[in-house]
Amino acid sequence: MRRKKTTEDRVLDTIISVILFIVVFVTLYPFYYILLITLNSGTDTAVGGMYFWPRQFTLGNYLYFLEDPKWISSFGISMLRTIVGTALGVLFTGIVAYGLAKRDLIFRKSYFLIVVVAMNFSGGLIAFYIVLKSLGLINTFGVYVIPGMLNLFFLLIAITFFTEIPEELGESARIDGASEVRIFTKIILPVSMPLLATMSLFIGSGQWNAWLDSAYFVQDEGLRTLTYRMMQVINQTMVPSGEAQSAAMSRSSVTPFSIQATAMVVSIVPILGVYPFLQKYFVSGMMLGSVKG
């Protein structure tokens, strides 16, 4: 039998509901306001006083964004670096972690020492630039994906993950004649989906949001990322120049701020689209179904 709510219970429920509503509103309203800006005339938004719905509804911001080859090119570069960078980062980090997880690995402690030192000490930006230049990565697409192929933070997490996988799984496969590559791809990876999903989401988000490498190590405008373009707008270094471009923005009621907001909305969509497919792995058991007691 459910206990009948008293007056005190109703008052407490009301207070909790109000507090939760305020928290949700404060959390979600900034995102809604950015979306609101993209659906309103940029010149009208500059006037201010718009809070809950567009005063002059328009899709001009999105049309201008889609018609600008620089934004489209930057979106493509960001998408490509995210896909390639995430795939390479997860693959190589997983391979190295699988090797270091072997307790009988020669010089295992030395490798761990190298990883810990590399995590806590850096040669600095100049030394990093010299290394990239010596490898021929400056002003190339490779500068986006190659330096991040080994993620040291997730390397330690993956090592801990792999060491907790029962060795009986690999030993039974070796008895059947399976190679280490086959064991890794057919046995270890399938039971490591929570780890792989978490690595993919965080590495992918890092690749998608990165802009410093595009600012420091790339001069080719065709290789600029979406976040770099957004930072240009924020720093007011990409103010429209030229009579033709200024006139085009004036006719379409588009402003640099409205384009920045549009780019922000567009940049959020891919992450929102991927996250629901990976979320279920965050709460799944690490060894669920792999070993039956």
Score class of each variant (00 low, 15 high):
55 R>Y: 11
97 A>R: 00
76 G>Y: 04
243 E>C: 03
215 A>H: 11
1 M>P: 14
260 Q>D: 08
145 V>I: 15
61 N>T: 11
26 V>D: 07
106 I>Y: 14
274 V>K: 01
239 V>Q: 10
57 F>W: 14
198 T>M: 13
274 V>E: 03
173 A>S: 13
163 T>M: 14
146 I>V: 15
237 T>W: 05
61 N>F: 02
94 G>H: 04
44 D>P: 00
64 Y>L: 05
49 G>Q: 10
55 R>M: 12
179 S>I: 04
230 M>R: 00
59 L>Q: 08
41 S>L: 05
205 S>P: 04
38 T>W: 00
14 T>F: 11
35 L>P: 05
50 M>I: 14
105 L>D: 10
68 D>A: 08
4 K>G: 10
63 L>D: 10
189 L>Y: 02
119 M>P: 03
81 R>E: 01
96 V>F: 12
226 L>D: 01
165 I>P: 03
66 L>G: 05
223 L>A: 07
121 F>H: 06
54 P>G: 10
147 P>I: 12
231 M>R: 12
86 T>W: 00
205 S>G: 12
201 L>E: 01
28 L>M: 08
165 I>S: 04
26 V>A: 14
281 Y>Q: 02
249 M>A: 11
58 T>D: 04
115 V>C: 09
160 T>C: 08
30 P>V: 13
137 L>W: 09
96 V>I: 14
56 Q>R: 11
133 K>C: 09
100 L>S: 03
72 I>A: 07
234 I>T: 06
195 L>R: 06
103 R>I: 11
196 L>Y: 04
6 T>Y: 10
263 A>V: 07
213 D>G: 13
219 Q>E: 13
42 G>K: 02
207 Q>S: 03
116 V>Q: 02
138 I>G: 09
160 T>G: 15
115 V>L: 09
232 Q>Y: 02
200 S>V: 10
173 A>R: 06
23 V>A: 12
24 V>C: 14
247 A>G: 12
130 I>K: 11
203 I>T: 01
147 P>A: 07
71 W>G: 00
83 I>W: 06
156 L>S: 07
250 S>K: 09
229 R>Q: 15
270 P>N: 04
215 A>I: 12
157 I>F: 13
80 L>N: 07
18 V>T: 15
31 F>P: 05
176 D>A: 08
12 L>G: 05
170 G>W: 00
219 Q>H: 13
200 S>M: 12
186 K>M: 13
50 M>G: 04
1 M>G: 13
7 T>W: 11
202 F>R: 01
84 V>K: 03
106 I>P: 11
208 W>L: 03
104 D>W: 05
70 K>A: 13
143 V>L: 04
226 L>S: 04
43 T>F: 02
55 R>T: 14
26 V>S: 09
184 F>R: 09
45 T>G: 00
116 V>H: 02
227 T>K: 02
139 N>I: 06
